[in-house]
Amino acid sequence: MTSPVPFVEQIAAVVDVSLKTIAALASSEEVAQAAPGLVGKKSALSQLKSSMGSITDSEERKSAGQALHAAQTSVDAALAAKKSECEATEMAAQLLREQIDITEHLVAGTTRGRLHLVTQATQRLEDVFIGLGFQVAEGPEVESDFYNFEALNMPKSHPARSMWDTLFVESEEPGSVVLRTHTSPVQIRVMQNWPPPIYAIMPGRVFRRDTPDATHMPVFHQIEGLVIDRNITFKDLAGTIEAFTKAFFGDDFTSRLRPSYFPFTEPSAEFDIRRANGSWIELGGCGMVHPDVLRAGGLDPEEWSGFAFGFGIDRMAKERHNVEDIREMYTNDLRFLRQFSS
């Protein structure tokens, strides 16, 4: 007959078997399955614990208890370590498995739409002028002779009318309805309807009887500025053009005014802007609002004075994006339109 194995040795043997079992576990699933047999209520260690009552010697029971606790701790720790080891391995495998090519989802690009280049330029211009304290005014595109010419100091048969090739619209009184040749008629409408002081810009579509070519369209866009206040001088015109130039094009741009002629302003000027490289671009026309125009707008030229300026929007867009032929902006070809994100 063999003598009974000492309790402490029994514990050591169970620990040994348990640790070997744990070491052999290969997945968190196996860990979960094996856990009850190793540390659960029916595990070998639990059974040893419940048989501890048979030890009568208090010293022996004490040391057995300590050994059992140590055994429990080491098996728990080994199982927990195994569990996290398996989970880490499995997560790593999952991450590897789930790898995708992100660019597959980017190749297609955006489905976002596009603003027309002219709308983009108009909005940028509006924003700059709003920053300078201007409001935005609008007017009809089909105008009466009065607003397009007469109120702008061009009475009937004024020779300067020939500066614009005008498109006429059928009307009861022939020649009395035109497609506006410039945004200037809005000046008169604003003067008539807004109490001064007026700081306004007027962007919009204008029309000329011009055969289309690389730089001209019969239908195009202008922006007009009008300032009416007390004691507005030519200096204010030059300063405003300069402020706009820097705000819109950049601080290294400057502007200059040189004498010109428009029936609705006097003194009149063309304004040019100078690029950082020293080259000049002709931008538009401007001048002090002619006293007759102020009168036509219902304002007393002895009380109010002001200036106006205007230039083409299409050309700004053309320059900005190096569009070779302005007609391309009006083909409505999506291959062209989609180039310019807004």
Partner: peptide, 21 residues
């Protein structure tokens, strides 16, 4: 024209888009 100089008038108007705009 250059010799006349430049000054920027201070707009007493609040620059903004109208509701419609």
């Amino acid at each position: 024209y250059d010799a006349l100089g430049k000054s920027v008038p201070h707009s007493p108007v609040h620059g903004r888009l109208s509701g419609v705009q």
